[in-house]
Design a protein around this nucleic acid. Structure first.
Lengths: 224, 224
DNA sequence: ACCTGAACACCGTTCAAGT
DNA sequence: ACCTGAACACCGTTCAAGT
């Protein structure tokens, strides 16, 4: 069971080394875009980058760390876009705010569809834990602030979970549309907006009396 | 670029061969549960099943087809559970119907968490196309019928897309909770119900006047 | 400090040989 | 018809040798 480290092995100390690292990451993004996850191998990345495979392993402990670095960059750029969008829609109606965020997420996903899909996929699989949460907290905090002070949500308490759920929901709808052969972005925007508005404006459910059934289980690791 | 076939190579003709196939699939599920996707390899599956690697390739064209078969079985069992749930909640309030479906989905995900997560993951990655849609249509149709005739949704038109969106949303929330270290199933139920009720009861958005921005793009395959 | 590329290990897949 | 397992190919990772 390989508990793989995902952090960069070391930082380049010389200028030409920094170029090497940058070249490697660009090549990795390129290969991932062109060939998707199958066909993404270190040999090809090295070839496209014009370096030896060994050079990759001087800065990244393994292939997963290479992908993790790309995910980190994508997250950063998403966080920037979210903050810009919230700034633009400041003081506007809730549907405007939400539409802005949805547009950002759609752009993020469809701007480079193959790459984004591959990164999303690996994001779930890799134990990114803390690496991810830094930037994601930044996003969550910004959105939560915007929600909290919004008049239309005055009566609803907006928790961190609520904010994260909004992201989860929007992301799922967008990714689902992305796998379609002919995505309809206009329709997608409406559906995502409806889902988010619905979730946010729906009063949190009063505890629903529920008969206990055999689905009242705690998570376990049974064999099939 | 390997356009991999995912359908079983052939059906076993003798009884002992059927046993072999069953044994292989059970071993595959076992390995996947124990070791997750890393560490899931054909050699180990063969070893656990007590057969030679060659035997696997007599019935499955490749490793992905093995996983695809497991996905198919999981989908079938989910479809059964959905239909049973809809039958139980027939004529009840909408929140009851939705809660029943949510419980089914939660049971499906948490009953064998590692296996379910691995299968979900591969479900997105593999080009399952038609293999999936058969069972998924069965589920979607059943749910859509239940929604369409439900009094509380009388004024809302329930399209196929609406139904699928509900699944997408519920699944995303459940999977997200499944990656947590200490999942809170009771809270998850409430959040999922709120999301589904919100989406279904929220009147479909009137076309929102939107300024055109540079995010009005069509999907493309640009380089980063 | 950085880079190279041959060498090794692991694993997916095949195929000649068996029953 | 079914099963075996050695052999091959591909790819992740390392390391001794270079600059």
């Amino acid at each position: 069971m390989p508990k793989q480290p995902l952090l960069p092995r070391k930082k380049p100390r010389q200028a030409r080394a920094a170029v090497t690292v940058e070249t490697i990451l660009e090549a990795a993004a390129r290969v991932l875009s062109d060939k998707s996850l199958d066909g993404f191998n270190t040999n090809r990345v090295a070839e496209v980058a014009g370096v030896s495979v060994g050079s990759i392993y001087q800065y990244f402990p393994n292939k997963a760390a290479l992908v993790a670095a790309l995910i980190g960059r994508a997250q950063d750029s998403l966080a920037d876009a979210v903050e810009r969008s919230l700034q633009r829609s400041q003081g506007q109606r809730l549907d405007r705010v939400l539409s802005g965020l949805i547009d950002v997420a759609i752009e993020h996903q469809f701007g480079n569809a193959v790459l984004a899909a591959a990164l999303d996929h690996e994001e779930q699989r890799l134990p990114l834990g803390d690496m991810l949460s830094a930037t994601q907290h930044r996003i969550a905090k910004a959105v939560q602030r915007a929600f909290e002070k919004h008049p239309e949500l005055g009566n609803t308490t907006v928790t961190a979970t609520t904010t994260i759920d909004c992201f989860t929901i929007a992301k799922a709808l967008i990714e689902s549309e992305a796998t379609r052969e002919k995505p309809d972005l206009a329709a997608l925007r409406k559906r995502a907006l409806r889902a988010l508005q619905g979730y946010l404006l729906q009063p949190a459910t009063k505890t629903l009396p529920r008969k206990r059934t055999r689905t009242d289980i705690q998570p376990s690791q049974d064999s099939p």
